[in-house]
Design a protein around this nucleic acid. Structure first.
Lengths: 161, 161
DNA sequence: CGCAGTGGGTTGCTTGATGCAACCAAGTGT
DNA sequence: ACACTTGGTTGCATCAAGCAACCCACTGCG
């Protein structure tokens, strides 16, 4: 997105989009949630331009969504972690993921599923465990390959061939 | 957002963002959900450029998120309505709104609240009625001004002065 | 010691979406 | 007859995104 401000909106959706509505921002958050923490990992996983990744990371840090921690000095090397504010985007990501699953996934089904770490139950579009009924947060869940995973990979391989 | 495609992503979040990740798209959906249905209403409510609004509406129609219905002929005039697919974005909007409320709202609180039409209970970030516990959908809820509404309006007036 | 490789960026250039303003067109009010 | 409303389209300027090349500090490795 450009400019990324929506003047005159008394609306928290607009406020949210000012912060994470730019292209790539939410995907970076998702990728870090999936365990990619380093610049190079993010860059190759997302296929994003390096300068854009650099500026998005900086913006997300400025917004207190990410935190940068050195994992070595000389040369300084960093990893990016989600703050609580960043982790709290999880329900929105889950909702978007489920919407994509419903309307954009192939006939095989969702490429990824979210499961409750504790009980292994599937997590629904509201971020609630279908098995134990608990309302979950980012740390309570993890991703696994879904029924449409193989098809999605095959499709991606085909389109890049 | 530009291009609006994320090649090589086997991820439904990316798929969703390809469709509704462009600047303004989600705000248009929200505005229509709020009852603004006509071109001019949307334009003045959002403060979006008219050509951009025009192209976004067309894109959202192409994606089967909106539906355009004539409310008069000669001259043809249209209203835009959400399809089921569009209405199903509601949980994502609710999640984003709550995130914005939590981290971007002023000390007064959220500018808008969502309430369950049937029982009047407040709707939480998972789109569940706090009062009756029901899992809600777009049609089950409506917006009302929240505690931070006046402050947000005052702030907007000030910044435009 | 020299030299390639890796990680993490920054710098320039090009492209293309966005913002703005002006214009068009069909009807309506007065 | 003339302005006004609604719903756009067209043209132009700007600014962010994409891409490739470059920089820098180290780490092997012969």
């Amino acid at each position: 997105m450009l400019r990324a401000d929506y003047p005159g909106q008394y609306c928290s959706i607009a406020k949210s989009l000012e912060v994470i509505g730019e292209r790539w921002s939410l995907l970076i958050v998702r990728d870090i949630l999936n365990g990619n923490r380093r610049f190079g990992e993010l860059q190759s996983s997302l296929g994003i331009a390096r300068n854009v990744l650099s500026s998005r990371l900086q913006r997300l840090i400025d917004e207190d969504i990410l935190e940068r921690r050195a994992y070595q000095e000389s040369p300084p090397r960093y990893e990016y972690f989600l703050t609580e504010k960043g982790l709290d985007l999880w329900p929105a990501l889950i909702a978007l993921m489920n919407w994509g699953d419903r309307y954009s996934a192939g006939p095989e089904g969702a490429p990824r599923l979210i499961v409750h770490k504790e009980c292994g139950g599937l997590v629904n579009e509201r971020g609630i465990c279908e098995s134990c009924g608990e309302t979950l947060h980012a740390r309570d869940a993890r991703q696994i390959a879904g029924p449409g995973w193989d098809a999605a990979v095959a499709g991606a391989a085909e389109s890049s061939a």
